[in-house]
Structures are given as C-alpha cells and as structure tokens.
C-alpha cells in the first residue's frame, strides 16, 4: 500500500538521509537541526487522529504532495538566490525577513521530500527571469532598484500562490496523516504573504491603502505588481461562502468580505503559474 510507504518514509533515518542530500544540493543552508527534526516529525504524526472513514485516493494525496514539493522547490531556491544576490540591503529588515522565509521554505522542501520518499519529484530547473521578463537578482543589468522591486513582487506572488495552492489540495489530503502538516505549512505561507505585503509597502514607499496591510482585496494584485501575476489573484473576489452571500448577510462591503476569505486554487492553475519560472 502506498500509504504505508508514506508512513515509513516519515521515519527519522529517512528524514535525515533526505535532509543531508538536500543540503548537499543547496549548499550551506543547514537550518534543520538533527535533534529538532527528530523531535518534530513524530509530533506531527502524533497529532493526526485515527479516521473512521475511508482514505482518499492515495494517488491524489501523492499528487497533492508532489505539487506542494514543486512549489516549495521554487520558493526555496528563489529565497536562497535572493539572499545571495546582494539586492537586499545588508543588515536590513528586508534581509532578516527573507532569511526567515528562506529557512521555512527550505525546511518545507526537506519535510515534503522525507514524506514522499520514493515518490518525491526532483527539483525542476528554474528561471526566475521568466524568460527575460524579470531580473530579480540583478544578473542582467536591470539595476538594483528595479531588481529589488521585482524581488519583492515575485515573493508576494509566490507566497499568495502557495497559500491558494495548498488550500486547493486540502481535499486530496483528507483522511491522510498529511492533512495537518499541510495545513501547518499553509498557514506559514500565509504569514509570509502577509509580511511581504507590508515589507513591499515600506520599501516602495507606497501610500497606505487596503492592498498593503497583509490581506488580498477582491482580485487586486496591488500597486506595482506586474500584470503577469494577475492569475495569482483571479477568483479572490468571491463573496459567497458555503452558499451564503456575506455582503448580504453582513453590513460590510465586498472589499471587507473578499479580504476575509482566501480562495483555493486548483492544481492546474498553480502548475501553470509555477511553469512560468520552470525551464525543465
């Protein structure tokens, strides 16, 4: 049974082996302490309750985790390269924020690789210029200022995509021990997304408005966001939840209602967005 393989993959030995090989690939980002890893993994599994209803399709669960891993590869490599690029001012709050996010994304890669075991997909080869559209690491002479703006814009787009993509896969993980850890990653991505918005607003010296507090308004990508990122926000304008039109049910407008709920994104849409940055 595939699910047994899943569970076996979560043994400590496997985790450490995977973590080590991952480190070899990514170089010096050894943020995951061995003792911490040993302590944390069984805890995650221990919190998963026994189920009284059938497991979902195991292939769907594996597919969900493989998509998640692909998105985490994208984020992890993006933040590592961002920190190496010299675009972020040394010693700035922005650098500290990117360090913290980078730590989490690399940990997510390790965690999902360990969870998937033999089903783990390899990292794609990424091109963060998206075929020359961007130059977030200032490798092609766009200049520090523009590169910094793109570095922040892409971070916001990646984080908001992550939030929506995990949400879209929750149903495929129902009844598996991976639902709770996936939810725990999902809310970390949301914390990141919130922080990047406020950081962007400060760095770009934007006027204070609804788009820079930390949540998504309607389907607005927000000021300064490239049009290429619009797919990340399409559908976020929804105001009907569980059949209840919350504009009608409350005294609040569609701005506040849309902000109150983040919308899921299906796997195809998430793959298409990630695909903009994937060479092979």
């Amino acid at each position: 049974m595939e699910i047994i393989k899943f569970l076996e993959a979560f043994t400590s030995d496997n985790l450490l082996a995977r973590t080590s090989s991952r480190r070899a690939v990514f170089g010096t980002f050894g943020t995951l302490g061995k003792k911490a890893a040993l302590a944390a993994i069984p805890f995650g599994l221990a919190t998963a309750p026994s189920r009284t209803f059938a497991f979902q399709d195991q292939n769907a669960a594996i597919g969900a985790l493989q998509l998640a891993l692909t998105l985490e590869y994208l984020e992890a490599e993006f933040y590592i390269k961002a920190l190496e690029s010299g675009v972020l001012p040394s010693g700035s709050n922005a650098e500290a924020i990117y360090e913290q996010i980078s730590k989490h994304e690399t940990a997510h890669v390790d965690f999902l690789m360990a969870g998937l075991g033999d089903d783990a997909v390899d990292s794609p080869v990424f091109d963060f210029t998206a075929g020359g559209m961007f130059d977030p690491f200032n490798e092609n002479g766009t200049g520090q200022e523009v590169a910094y703006a793109q570095l922040l814009a892409l971070a916001q787009a990646f984080e908001d995509t992550g939030v929506r993509a995990y949400k879209g896969q929750a149903g495929n993980l129902m009844g598996t021990p991976f639902l709770t850890p996936a939810l725990q990653i999902h809310s970390v991505e949301a914390r990141h997304a919130s922080e990047i918005r406020r950081l962007r607003a400060r760095v770009m010296e934007m006027d204070l408005d609804q788009n820079m507090l930390g949540w998504i308004t309607l389907n607005e990508r927000g000021p300064g966001m490239p049009e290429a990122t619009q797919a990340v926000y399409d559908g976020e304008e929804n105001v009907i939840q569980g059949g209840v039109n919350l504009v009608n049910a409350t005294n609040f407008d569609n701005i506040a209602v849309s902000q109150s709920y983040d919308e899921p994104m299906d796997g195809d849409t998430a793959s298409a967005i990630a695909g903009l940055f994937i060479v092979s």
Binding site: K167, G214, Y261, D262, E263, P264
Partner: peptide, 23 residues
C-alpha cells in the same frame, strides 16, 4: 470536504492577521 476548504479559507486570513499583529 466543503467545510474543510472553508476552514482553510479562514485560517490563512487568521495567519495573515497574526503576522500583521506580530510585526
């Protein structure tokens, strides 16, 4: 499943709030 998705829609907004208050 529908309730799980709705809970997911809410929890990420709570996480956005938590990050904002913390920062």
């Amino acid at each position: 499943p529908d309730y799980l998705v709705i809970a997911g829609k809410i929890v990420s907004v709570e996480a956005r709030h938590a990050a904002a208050i913390r920062s």
